[in-house]
């Protein structure tokens, strides 16, 4: 059976790990990300006969690769391209948390926003209109409380429907200052010519404008690997059989 990959992204202290634990129980594997001293945790979930592999990305404040954690999380979303990315946001500090969500929405359109700690937010008198947020962001928004196991079924159901294609997303598109937008437009078409539709070209263009050298290296590696994959395909099959 085809195992679907779901990445969990989010700020530190949002209860992302609690959600990960709630969903996967004790069936987890931990190790390191290849070549990095960053913890990699994954675990399996079954829902309605579909098997999911959850990947708990490092908790980060942003995805601009200011740190190894951010680089790992970003590279996974952009280059490994999970079937869906869950952005876990803290219901008690929406403003800062949406900051990360908006960054993820620039990188992929298979996103579900998962507002955690909703019980705590309600206690503090914070009321979140998830319908409105969902229509603004163009992706599903689910309110949950991972520690009280609230909203978990709705979340799993939303994941299933998104992956089946029952939910169409139209991610919120950031608009930057006119000068930056102009540059993005110029670069984007050329980026697309080079790397095709495999990667988010608008986002790539923006990162190039920001002078992200590490991304360039990584992208180059990826393209090389893809080339190799095609050539070594038969060889790989021979080994596997």
């Amino acid at each position: 059976m085809n195992v679907k990959k779901i990445a969990l992204a989010g700020n530190p202290n949002t209860g992302k790990s609690t959600l990960f634990n709630t969903l996967t129980g004790l069936k987890q594997h931990t190790g390191n990300w290849p070549g990095k001293t960053v913890v990699h945790a994954e675990g399996n979930v079954q829902y309605q006969g579909q098997e999911y592999l959850l990947i708990d990305l490092p908790g980060t404040y942003s995805l601009f690769s200011n740190s190894t954690d951010e680089e790992v999380a970003r590279d996974y979303i952009v280059f490994e391209q999970p079937d869906a990315t869950l952005v876990v946001v803290d219901g008690t500090s929406m403003e800062r948390n949406l900051n990360l969500a908006l960054q993820v929405l620039e990188m992929t359109d298979k996103v579900i926003i998962c507002i955690n700690l909703i019980d705590e937010a309600e206690k503090k008198g914070i009321v979140i209109d998830e319908g409105k947020l969902s229509s603004k962001l163009g992706v599903p928004v689910v309110k949950i409380s991972a520690r009280n196991k609230q909203g978990i079924d709705t979340l799993l159901d939303t994941i299933a429907r998104l992956l089946r294609g029952d939910i169409q997303t139209k991610p919120y598109r950031m608009t930057y200052q006119p000068e930056i937008e102009e540059q993005i437009k110029k670069l984007e078409s050329r980026v697309r010519e080079l790397i095709g539709h495999d990667y988010p070209s608008r986002w790539m263009a923006l990162r190039l404008l920001d002078g992200d050298d590490a991304l360039l290296k990584k992208l180059h590696e990826q393209i090389q690997m893809k080339g190799r994959e095609v050539k070594s395909y038969e060889f790989g099959n021979a080994i596997n059989s």
């Binding site: 404040y61 942003s62 601009f64 200011n66 403003e95 800062r96 900051n99």
Partner: peptide, 11 residues
Amino acid sequence: GVMRRRLLDLG
């Protein structure tokens, strides 16, 4: 540098 970016990320 990094500190500026980190502070921006934190709000």
